[in-house]
């Protein structure tokens, strides 16, 4: 039997809202991700799915419960992370390479980041705060495709589809496929074709809890039968909150063509 790489036990997570309010995102969620599993996440509420990814990668702390990680787990790719705007792209890439890269492959991996980010000439050696938001987002994607992890956690911001630049789309897809082949995956994305292509299992989160667990086609069917309707209503509520927060809009270039 394959070993458990990530285990959440009775995990609870809340988010703070303005005026001292809080909202539950995960309630008593217990979930184990085993080696080799490729699990898609369907959710009636995007923030609950994101919270699950963040807790599974230990990016966000739990309010209660426990998370145990027994592998090299990625951050929710391609999140912005803690890269510094006052540093150049190369300096940031070098820093991440030292933390997550393969020793002895510094030059190759940094060159690969530069290639995948497809920045304008000279931009890679300029401060990141002088870059536009799309360049920055492309850099985040490039960084996420270069390092080797045991478990890849992919968020909805992953730019799977870039129809305006088919060559770069192919480059990114190839890099992604090479990276995740044979690896454990936890994937949340709006594009169900993308989910179906890589995942053979799925979980459905409804009302902050795991409501269904099973094979991908069954979970997808269950989700559409039971959840989709309420999801549309919740998404409009979610949008209202996002509309009031410019920072969140900047953080969500999932609908944007990056290349």
């Amino acid at each position: 039997m394959s070993r458990t790489l990530i285990e959440l036990t009775r995990a609870c997570r809340e988010e703070s809202l303005p005026r001292g309010r809080s909202r539950c995102l995960l309630k008593d969620v217990s979930f184990a991700l085993r080696e080799g599993q490729k699990v898609a996440v369907f959710s009636d509420f995007n923030k609950s799915a994101n919270a699950l990814l963040e807790c599974a990668s230990e990016v966000a702390p739990l309010q209660s419960g426990k998370v145990e990680i027994r592998a090299n787990v990625s951050w929710p790719l391609p999140s912005r992370g803690a890269l510094e705007g006052v540093m150049t792209g190369r300096q940031n890439a070098k820093f991440l390479q030292a933390v997550y890269g393969t020793p002895g492959e510094e030059y190759e991996q940094i060159a690969r980041i530069e290639e995948l980010a497809a920045l304008e000439p000279g931009c890679f050696d300029q401060r990141m705060k002088s870059w536009g938001p799309l360049m920055r987002a492309r850099f985040d994607v490039a960084v996420s495709l270069v390092f080797d992890f045991d478990v890849y956690i992919i968020s909805k911001r992953f730019p799977w589809s870039q129809p305006t630049r088919p060559q770069l789309e192919t480059l990114v897809r190839e890099a992604f496929e090479r990276r995740v082949s044979g690896k454990t995956l936890l994937l949340f994305h709006q594009d169900e074709e993308f989910l179906g292509r890589y995942c053979d299992e799925a979980i459905v989160i409804s009302d902050c809890q795991i409501a269904y667990k099973g094979s991908f086609p069954d979970a997808q069917k269950w989700f559409h039968l039971n959840i989709t309707k309420s999801r549309i209503e919740d998404d409009s509520q979610d949008q209202e909150i996002e509309d009031s927060s410019p920072e969140l809009i900047e953080e969500s270039p999932d609908e944007v063509q990056l290349w």
Binding site: E84, V86, M87, Q91, K94, F95, A98, V99, R127
Partner: peptide
């Protein structure tokens, strides 16, 4: 490797 990378980063940040 991590400590050296963090020290370099800290140095760049201070310099900037």
């Amino acid at each position: 490797r991590i400590v050296l990378a963090l020290a370099d980063r800290d140095f760049f940040m201070r310099a900037e």
